[in-house]
Amino acid sequence: MSAEAHGAVFHAPRGHQFDTAEQQKDASTLGMWIFLVTEIMFFGGLFCCYLVYRWLYPAAFAAASHHLDVALGGFNTAALICSSLTMVLAVNASQHGKRGALIAFLILTILLGGVFLGVKAVEWHHKFVDHHVPGPSFLFEGPDARQAQLFFSLYFVMTGLHALHMVIGIGLLTVLTVQAKRGKFTPEYNTPVDMCGLYWHFVDLIWIFLFPLLYLIDRHAK
């Protein structure tokens, strides 16, 4: 209640170039989706490299993939899916003007994102310890050591860029939380929450593909 009363003070800030708040919201949504398409193509270049090298060196990719920790990867997938749920609930709360719920769900999402990054850091640390980081110190036992390095190069670039997107997402969500505390969002104006939600789900989506592609190659073979 107090959230609504407080929110009423703020009117949807509208740019002078727009005629209506609805036009502004439509424009933001379309702009966000186009941005997500650029993200698809950005990760697409990496998926292209992955496809080519997995096609050329299936055995090396399988052998290298077995050195990733399925338990940690699976846990992280679950953590991200949970964070997607809390994010969509946050968007839902902002649409209904529930300020308390919005703030709670935003903080939960940030925490789950933090858990993901923490686990990711542990995994990367293991790779450092095991000399699976590409470069001069790279060590890999088996017939396909050179091509296995390709796998780990892609692993680090893909998970690294994904993690970078997570960090940016957490930054955005932190800003949203502060703004939500100040009562910036109302049922009439919640576009930023909506847009950050789209971004967060997209980052989740990338991971939904990264998990089977990186962690689950020919697991039955061992």
């Binding site: 379309l30 186009i34 398409v37 698809i40 193509m41 697409g44 994010m87 969509v88 789900h201 989506l205």
Partner: peptide, 29 residues
């Protein structure tokens, strides 16, 4: 995720088209 969490199920045809275009161009590559 796309249909429910990202609300594409309820969005305009244009949004659907944009999302599909992203996938299509990725497949071209």
């Amino acid at each position: 995720v796309v249909l429910y969490f990202m609300h594409v199920r309820q969005s305009t045809k244009l949004t659907k088209l944009v999302a599909a275009a992203g996938v299509f161009w990725l497949l071209l590559l």
